[in-house]
């Protein structure tokens, strides 16, 4: 997320020019209907990004909720910087801003989960999977989820944004707060890793 709360100017897929500024103004005025409208507009795409990043539906929903609440919090600043019927208002894209927020939240969540350890919790329930769960997990390992989960966080985000969300490289780079060259390099590595993982799963002939 942009630390300054400055919204992205990347092109949104659903909002018309200037309508995002009006929506931000209504959010700044603390209009619950405006928040509901923003959820209707953007929550689905945010849910897709979050779910494909984390692979967990509940966690993805939490991330989307947190992103929408941050929009609620930052709305006064956004509206102040993009007054309605100004040139800045035309450049406002709340969808791009929310994409960046939810992507960064997902990356943070993945990194935090990787660092956390349950070894210090006493008397922990035995979570060893049962036989049927193992079979199901084995099948799932060959699925797209396993392929995406095999990628590092930022490479995973690059694939999710460009392949699944069909963003341009520039828009995806802005969502990840990278310059375009660095993002293209990241995307190249991500695709290479993805093909290697696909080959490792025995399907071969990655394309």
């Amino acid at each position: 997320m942009n630390a300054s709360g400055k919204p992205s100017t990347i092109a949104g897929t659903r909002a018309d020019c200037g309508s995002d500024a009006a929506l931000a103004a209504r959010l700044a005025a603390r209009d619950p209907a405006a928040l509901r409208e923003a959820i209707t507009l953007y929550a689905a795409s945010l849910q897709r990004i979050a779910f494909r990043m984390t692979g967990d539906a509940h966690e993805a929903e939490d991330l989307v909720q947190e992103a929408m609440l941050r929009l609620w919090d930052q709305a006064p600043k956004i509206a102040a910087r993009h007054p309605v019927e100004s040139q800045a208002a035309a450049a406002l894209r709340l969808g791009g801003w929310l994409n960046r927020v939810v992507t960064n939240l997902a990356i943070d969540r993945l990194r935090r989960g990787r660092r956390m350890s349950a070894g210090e919790v006493p008397d922990r329930e035995d979570e060893a999977p049962l036989a049927d769960a193992l079979i199901e997990a084995g099948e799932r390992d060959h699925s797209a989820r396993a392929l995406i989960a095999a990628l590092p966080e930022r490479q995973r985000a690059a694939i999710v944004l460009t392949y699944y969300e069909d963003m341009s490289n520039a828009a995806a780079a802005e969502a990840l707060e990278m310059n375009i060259k660095a993002f293209e390099s990241l995307l190249l590595r991500a695709r290479t890793t993805l093909r290697r993982a696909y080959a490792d799963f025995g399907e071969g002939g990655a394309q």
């Binding site: 929550a43 494909r52 989307v64 797209a144 989820r145 993805l194 696909y198 394309q207």
Partner: peptide
């Protein structure tokens, strides 16, 4: 094949 595998990743609704 890779694209077909990736496309098989449905997203649950909210």
């Amino acid at each position: 094949p890779l694209a077909r595998r990736l496309d098989d990743y449905p997203v649950p609704d909210l």
